[in-house]
């Protein structure tokens, strides 16, 4: 464990807690894409299949449970909570996320480190995580009004993967034979997808104006 990875995990944890806090306190999911949340639940479900078989550390198991629990409860809130669901804008959140799931599954079947069910599922979760934010970014472009919590949520989500890239660089130089091209490339693609959001986020923060994404 290194500081970059720990900071990345804490940033990732903060992003889901910000989202849960928003939904739980103001009972609203305005501006949040259910599609992205469903994709994230699928990412965690397919990545943490080894939850009960491989014990790595208490920290690892605990964080997996938190991420699984939070992502599924966010999906539950937006889908079924009688108050929260009313603020879900399904007419705007129309990204056909099946168009993301299938290509990621096919790619995972073609490009993976080992052709076993667990490994293909793990690779699928990596590819899917890289593109899972797209419905959310599309929704932000459409609705234009980004409230602070949603902006913070997306920012933290992007920052966590950027910290993970530093972690991979650190591990590459400190651990012999630590090479995971698939992880590195999908993590890089994921971070690049946030690049323009980061740009506008910093612009709005620097000029102290409300965050607006260009149409």
């Amino acid at each position: 464990m290194n500081i970059f990875r720990f900071a990345g995990d804490m940033t990732h944890l903060a992003s889901v807690l910000v989202l849960l806090l928003k939904i739980h306190t103001i009972k609203s999911c305005a501006g949040i894409s259910l599609k992205t949340q469903e994709l994230y639940a699928l990412v965690f479900a397919t990545r943490y299949l080894d939850l009960f078989t491989d014990y790595i550390s208490l920290y690892n198991t605990l964080m997996k449970l938190i991420f699984l629990g939070s992502s599924f409860s966010i999906v539950w809130y937006i889908r079924y909570h009688k108050i929260v669901r009313r603020s879900y804008d399904k007419d705007q959140d129309t990204f056909r996320h099946y168009f993301l799931v299938l290509p990621c599954l096919l790619l995972a079947l073609l490009i993976n480190e080992k052709f076993t069910f667990r490994e293909v599922m793990w690779t699928f979760s990596l590819y899917l995580e890289a593109v899972a934010i797209l419905p959310q970014l599309v929704l932000l472009q459409r609705t234009r009004n980004i409230d602070n919590l949603t902006g913070q949520y997306v920012f933290l989500l992007g920052a966590y993967r950027a910290l993970y890239i530093l972690n991979w660089i650190y591990r590459y130089f400190t651990e012999p034979h630590y090479v995971h091209w698939i992880t590195w490339i999908s993590g890089l693609v994921q971070t690049l997808l946030y690049a323009d959001f980061f740009y506008y986020y910093f612009q709005s923060w620097k000029n102290n104006v409300k965050l607006e994404l260009p149409a």
Binding site: R5, D9, H12, D50, D54, Y55, I56, S57, N60, M63, K64, F67, E113, W122, Y164, N167, H180, T183
Partner: peptide, 10 residues
């Protein structure tokens, strides 16, 4: 012994 799977990251 802890099985150190190659995927020790979250």
């Amino acid at each position: 012994t802890q099985k150190r799977s190659s995927h020790d990251e979250l």
